[in-house]
Design a protein around this nucleic acid. Sequence first.
DNA 1: CTTGATGCAAAATATTTGCATGCTC
DNA 2: GAGCATGCAAATATTTTGCATCAAG
Lengths: 159, 159
Amino acid sequence: MVDYSFLLEELKRILKEKQLKFTRQRELVLKALFENEGHFSPEELHRLIQKKNPDTRVGIATIYRTLTLLEEEGLADSISFGKEGKRYEIGLKKHHDHLICTHCGKIIEFFDETIEKRQEEVARRFDFQMTDHAMKIIGICKECREREAGNQTNTQENH
Amino acid sequence: MVDYSFLLEELKRILKEKQLKFTRQRELVLKALFENEGHFSPEELHRLIQKKNPDTRVGIATIYRTLTLLEEEGLADSISFGKEGKRYEIGLKKHHDHLICTHCGKIIEFFDETIEKRQEEVARRFDFQMTDHAMKIIGICKECREREAGNQTNTQENH
DNA sequence: CTTGATGCAAAATATTTGCATGCTC
DNA sequence: GAGCATGCAAATATTTTGCATCAAG
């Protein structure tokens, strides 16, 4: 796992390179993504940051602007699923894909070498210059299946 | 490729099963998805349908409601990418994944047996009951790279 | 006829933008 | 000090909902 000081230096380097400014707000967004395990909506991140830093004013617009910036620079990644809008996580983690449970919303991360290799091959097959890729497996996690088997009533849904 | 009459029968069967009604609007949305190759936003589908059927009034709300229904029943699939919201295509096609060009927005479909197999394995590994899965390869297509190599000026973007 | 479906407009959300002011550099 | 970044509020964009009315079964 990448450590925070490295991420922070990366951010500073990128900002300098693009002649942008290093601000407390940009740092706070990066830190929030780093410190909180999970995948957050802009709203949720906003709340997290406000709660942890009642001293600093941070507008929701800045959250959006910063997340866009971080994603462009690879310091944040986003996924979206179903009704949910985009959710962000810290970038520069080892690449991985996601299992998403439709019952409890849990997101599990995984990595599979074979899939990675085949993706590169597919891109080559279409003469496509791959810059990124993402895979989602949608379904029902172990815990939800067990819980729902417990409740005799058939709460199974079909989507 | 599945033919339209089959899809229509499927829709009727599903509606009957759920005691819902077969309406002209629902048929029009299914037909629009079937007849138009591509991946459309609700707005775009609305426009397509209105243009082709000036006689029938179709509200945007019905488009949303119908797309949600069709997706739940597997008669439509959706993908989303970047700023774009959800885009829909007809369902019940042979399963496939997508290559998405960030320069021209083109979406290429592909299928890779090895990837499919590995996905099942990953789900098994996590004791996860997979109901669906999706893969996106993001990048720059051949045509865009060629076109942009032609324009001497470096129009390459980095996101 | 009964009940679900629709269009419309209003409401709820989500996201972006303009602008005066504040902070980095 | 110059210029980008920010907060705020207004503007957009997107999606959902309430309700009177319509139409399928």
